[in-house]
């Protein structure tokens, strides 16, 4: 018996709309989580190198706590557990705005924030310590030295590992289907259930993830090129006049 491929099921009936909605939800979920994860990552990654022990300890606690619990457990925790201890107003807000989606955003943000933090810490630590000394020696405060010197340089250095982490985040957003977020994997499964065409539906899902990830990778590569420091990372382009 040969399997009769019917690609047109992907766009007939509701199916096309479902897949598009799934893509849109995946993008929204990943983008929001990415922004929060980067924020948390930069903050805690910087604190992990700060010249004050209590701040370092605080950031270390955050990282070790959130990266050492499986993402799936975090999803369940933030969806089933955390809302129960929220005050009434918070629960109402969640129920009005889709608790699945926001729980998934929180879970992805804290988990990937902790992982991003390590990437950023490594970046900051690879900037020579003497640059920090030079900046505070001119009268910049420690905060200014971080904001104006260390972090901008570190962010340029960590683009490749940060790209990796961003791709992981997008792919991990598929786990949100377990708490009922109607993202791409969820919708792929739905198409499969309604049409009984597993091969076509899952092939479509696979390819869509691939395209999304390749797009991110190429955007990050362009960012890397745009931000490279003249003469430093672009070897051979020395413009000595």
């Amino acid at each position: 018996m040969t399997y009769d491929l019917q690609w047109n099921i992907l766009w007939t009936g509701e199916n096309g709309r479902w897949l598009l909605e799934g893509i849109w939800t995946t993008i929204r979920l990943s983008a929001l989580s990415w922004i929060f994860a980067c924020g948390l990552g930069v903050l805690s990654g910087a604190l992990r190198t700060a010249p004050f022990r209590p701040l370092r300890a605080l950031a270390t606690c955050y990282v070790e706590f959130f990266r050492n619990v499986p993402l799936l457990v975090w999803l369940f925790f933030w969806y089933f557990g955390a809302p129960q201890v929220l005050p009434r107003a918070g629960q109402d807000w969640l129920n009005l705005h889709g608790p699945e989606f926001w729980s998934a955003v929180v879970a992805l943000s804290v988990y990937h924030g902790a992982r991003m933090s390590e990437v950023i810490r490594a970046g900051i630590q690879s900037v020579p310590k003497t640059l920090f000394e030079a900046s505070v020696a001119t009268g910049l405060s420690v905060g200014q030295a971080y904001r104006l010197i260390l972090i901008p340089i570190a962010l340029r250095l960590i683009i490749p590992p940060a790209t990796n982490e961003s791709l992981n985040l997008l792919k991990n957003s598929s786990l949100a289907l377990t708490i009922g977020v109607a993202e791409l994997t969820f919708m792929t499964r739905q198409v499969e259930t309604y049409t009984a065409r597993a091969f076509e539906a899952l092939t479509a899902g696979t390819l869509i993830y691939l395209v999304l990830c390749l797009t991110i990778a190429s955007v990050m590569a362009q960012v890397e090129r745009a931000l490279r420091i003249p003469g430093l990372i672009a070897r051979g382009v020395r413009s000595e006049s």
Partner: peptide, 15 residues
């Protein structure tokens, strides 16, 4: 520190 200029062996310019 703002009143004290310092010059280092390795220049330490912001790259």
């Amino acid at each position: 520190r703002a009143e004290i200029g310092m010059v280092f062996q390795q220049f330490n310019l912001y790259p």
